[in-house]
Each structure stands twice: as structure tokens, then as C-alpha cells.
């Protein structure tokens, strides 16, 4: 059996206590909510925290609330709860879809939306046991100093592998982040950095506490996920599209690609092309071609990277077609919200 290394476990009751504990232990400490990302990585010795700060006992992290200004989803809300929440499915179908496509039913019962937003970047040179990584000579993300995907590179190219992050970005979500020195509210885009190692733009003591969503008025959204199997697998391409419609004319739109870079990658030019337009097949084709531009996968996940790039265009087209009511165009219906 592959087992966890030893550590000290702290179980704070409040966010403030948790942030204080994190501040006190600095880089030696890591947060755990569902444990579905942290513990496998600890078993493979990708993470070696001396202190684990458990968030499970913090009540304020749980639950979904609707207020006049929009929605608040506690970061500790499980992915199962998010995916089956009737009002989320109604107002933010892409979010319900994305949460419901994360890994497997068991892991969705354990894993939280905060955990998925902060999920470690992945690379098939990195998500391996200590012995495997030792045999290949380690990489810069852990224990080594080169990138095995792009050996000449000075940076790490591990892949953002969250299903919910591109959707939340497309929906204009903000995050409430609580640290030892207070809290701040930031657009979700500001959480991410284009680096496989330092992929989160937050201090170690800062805890993602809430996901805040604006009211869904007029927004339609869709999420498509590419992976080998209908369960377990991380996305190797995610396409999130959200559009605010006025009748059949697009007023505002965002297209965000997942799992093709170290952070969710917005396709801004493509989205801009939609604004003020009716969604027609010609427009879908044009926008899909543009959206595939920022998709720059490397050979460090399942499937070949040229294939992932190629499917980006198809998925963007299908997601747009779904939003524009042009028929599903083909993909498995459960993947279209």
C-alpha cells in the first residue's frame, strides 16, 4: 500500500484561526478540505507539508446562499452539492455541469469547489510516485531543476486541471479570500498565474472562502470537457462559454479554455467577436477558429497535444451552438449544459 508520510494535523474552527495557523507555519503548512488533491500528492511525496490544516470543521465555508447582489457558494461546498443544486443548475448550468464532471461520484462527495478552484497543476512527469520521479531525474516542480516537457524552458508548464475554474471565470465569478491580515475580494482571473509551480496568486496563509457569482440575468453558459473516459479523468481540455443575451443578440460574452495552459486561458478576441451579433453557423465557425488560437497544449497530459488543440475549435463551436440554440451539433448531451 502506498501510504501518507507523517504530519501534524490542525483542525481550526474558524477561518481566522485557519489563516493564523497557515501564517504561523508558512511554507511548511498546507490546507486540506476534501483531501482528494492533497492526500494523493502527499502519498507520492509531491507535497511534503509538516502541518496540515483541515478546513472541514469550519462551518462558514459550507453552503450556497442567494442574495440580491448575486450568489455566494462557500468554498467548502462539495462538488456533489454544487452539481445537484437545483438553482445552480437553473441559473449557471455550465457550473453544475463542470462540477458534475469532476472525477468520480465518490470524489465529488469529498472534493470541494474551493479545492477544485485551487487544484494543483498537473503534468504526467510530475503526478508520479517519488520512485518514478527519481528514476526520470525529477522536474523543477518538485525535487528537480529542469522541465521535462520542455527541457530548454526556464519555467514549469504543468497544466491547470480544474473543471470549475474556466466556468467560474466565464461567469464573471469573484472570490472572497481570507488571510491572516484580513480579507479581499478579487475576480477569479486574479487568482491565477501563468506558471506551473506558482500557479496561484495568493499568499500561503490566504484561504479561498467564498465563490461569488453575479446574478444570472440573461446569461447562458455551457461547458465541454475532453477526457478519455466519462469518469475519473481530469480535463485535458475544457471549454467554458458564457454569453449574456438580449433576445437573440449577444450583449456580453466570455470564452475560457481549461487544461491547455498553466492557468485557465481566456479567448478574448474570439469572445469580442460575438458581441452585438446573432449566433449563426458562420459566426460560430469564425469564433471557434479564433478561440482555438490561445489553446497551446503541450505533451504532458493524456491524448496527443495536437489533438487537444484541434478539438478546442470543435468544442468551442459546439458550446456556442448549444448556447445559440443551433442544435447540439454532436457531443454527448451530458457534457452540454
Amino acid at each position: 500500500m502506498i501510504r501518507l508520510p507523517s504530519f501534524t494535523y490542525l483542525a481550526p474552527r474558524t477561518l481566522a484561526e485557519a489563516a493564523t495557523a497557515m501564517a504561523e507555519h508558512g511554507r511548511d503548512a498546507m490546507l486540506v478540505a476534501g483531501g482528494t488533491d492533497l492526500y494523493p500528492n502527499m502519498k507520492r511525496r509531491q507535497f511534503e507539508p509538516k502541518v496540515v490544516v483541515g478546513l472541514r470543521g469550519i462551518r462558514e465555508l459550507r453552503g450556497v446562499r442567494v442574495e440580491s447582489g448575486g450568489w455566494t457558494i462557500g468554498a467548502g461546498t462539495t462538488l456533489s452539492e454544487v452539481s445537484t443544486h437545483p438553482a445552480i443548475a437553473r441559473d449557471f448550468p455550465a457550473l453544475a455541469t463542470a462540477a458534475g464532471l469532476v472525477s468520480s461520484p465518490q470524489l465529488r462527495n469529498m472534493g470541494t469547489i474551493g479545492g477544485n478552484v485551487c487544484v494543483d497543476t498537473r503534468c504526467n512527469y510530475y503526478n508520479q510516485s517519488y520512485e518514478w520521479r527519481k528514476a526520470i531525474g525529477f522536474c523543477m516542480k518538485k525535487d528537480g531543476d529542469i522541465c521535462l516537457v520542455a527541457p530548454g524552458s526556464s519555467r514549469c508548464w504543468a497544466v491547470s486541471s480544474s473543471d470549475t475554474a474556466p466556468v467560474l471565470w466565464a461567469l464573471g465569478a469573484r472570490l472572497r479570500v481570507v488571510g491572516a491580515g484580513g480579507e479581499r475580494i478579487v475576480p477569479i482571473a486574479a487568482l491565477y498565474r501563468d506558471d506551473g509551480i506558482e500557479y496561484l496568486a495568493k499568499r500561503p496563509d490566504e484561504i479561498v472562502a467564498d465563490v461569488l457569482l453575479p446574478p444570472a440575468d440573461g446569461w447562458r453558459s455551457a461547458y465541454l470537457k475532453l477526457r478519455r473516459r466519462g469518469s475519473f479523468d481530469f480535463p485535458v481540455l475544457g471549454v467554458a462559454v458564457a454569453a449574456r443575451m438580449n433576445g437573440d443578440v449577444v450583449r456580453e460574452a466570455r470564452i475560457v479554455l481549461g487544461a491547455v495552459a498553466s492557468l485557465p486561458r481566456p479567448a478574448e478576441r474570439a469572445a469580442a467577436e460575438l458581441v452585438g451579433q446573432r449566433i449563426t453557423r458562420d459566426l460560430v465557425t469564425r469564433v471557434a477558429d479564433l478561440a482555438a488560437g490561445p489553446s497551446k497544449p503541450l505533451d504532458n497530459t493524456d491524448f496527443t497535444h495536437p489533438y487537444r488543440k484541434r478539438v478546442t475549435r470543435v468544442f468551442v463551436a459546439r458550446a456556442l451552438a448549444a448556447i445559440g440554440g443551433l442544435g447540439d451539433g454532436g457531443p454527448a448531451s451530458e457534457e452540454v449544459a
Binding site: 494535523y9 483542525a11 483531501g35 482528494t36 492526500y39 494523493p40 483541515g54 472541514r56 456533489s80 461520484p105 465518490q106 470524489l107 462527495n109 469529498m110
Partner: peptide, 13 residues
């Protein structure tokens, strides 16, 4: 009553 994976759960939790 909910299915979870015992390999990723701590007894403390």
C-alpha cells in the same frame, strides 16, 4: 450514507 474513498479520508476527519 454517502460513498467516499477510505484511502483519502483521515479517521480524524
Amino acid at each position: 450514507g454517502q460513498p467516499v474513498l477510505s484511502c483519502l479520508a483521515l479517521p480524524l476527519e
